[in-house]
């Protein structure tokens, strides 16, 4: 039995220690906004914030989380930067199929936490999440908009 802190709530989780956080979030806690895309930390659809850092939860074992604070897309608007990111995403109409966008929003929020006014190069380096709909240019535009 592990204890994790997600979106301000503490959960006791009955799962093996190596269970990826992704599956705990999705199947145990029912937080399905965090997506499974590849399972090998290539695509970024499963990105969550752990103590404010973007982490690909498909490769984060449950016992690696410890006492850290996990934030998922379900609570992103309660983060002031996350709120701005979501508004920019809506204004720029970034999503198409939308499947990767939870991860994109989380990664963008983490980037803006660390680098409030990112350059195009900063965005290129930080935003490595894949999007099969090719929304990359709109993602960048939305990040610039959120940065103000």
């Amino acid at each position: 039995m592990a204890s994790i802190q997600v979106n301000g709530t503490r959960y006791e989780v009955d799962a093996e220690a190596e269970t990826p956080l992704l599956w705990v979030l999705r199947d145990t806690l029912g937080l399905t906004g965090t997506k499974y895309g590849c399972g090998i930390a290539q695509c970024g659809a499963c990105t969550v914030l752990i103590d404010g850092q973007a982490v690909r939860s498909c490769q984060m074992p449950l016992d690696g989380v410890g006492t850290s604070e996990i934030r998922t897309i379900e609570a992103i608007e309660q983060d002031p930067i996350g709120h701005k990111v979501v508004e920019a995403w809506v204004a720029q109409e970034v999503p198409q199929c939308g499947y990767c966008q939870s991860g994109q929003v989380m990664a963008a929020t983490a980037l803006l936490r660390q680098t409030p006014k990112p350059s195009d190069a900063d965005i290129r380096d930080a935003m490595t999440n894949l999007c099969r709909c090719g929304t990359y240019n709109r993602v960048a535009a939305a990040i610039h908009q959120a940065a103000g």
Partner: peptide
Amino acid sequence: PRLDVRAKSTGKAIYAID
């Protein structure tokens, strides 16, 4: 404006996998 962008920007859109 697209009807689905807010749901898709906040993890609320529900797909088969969900």
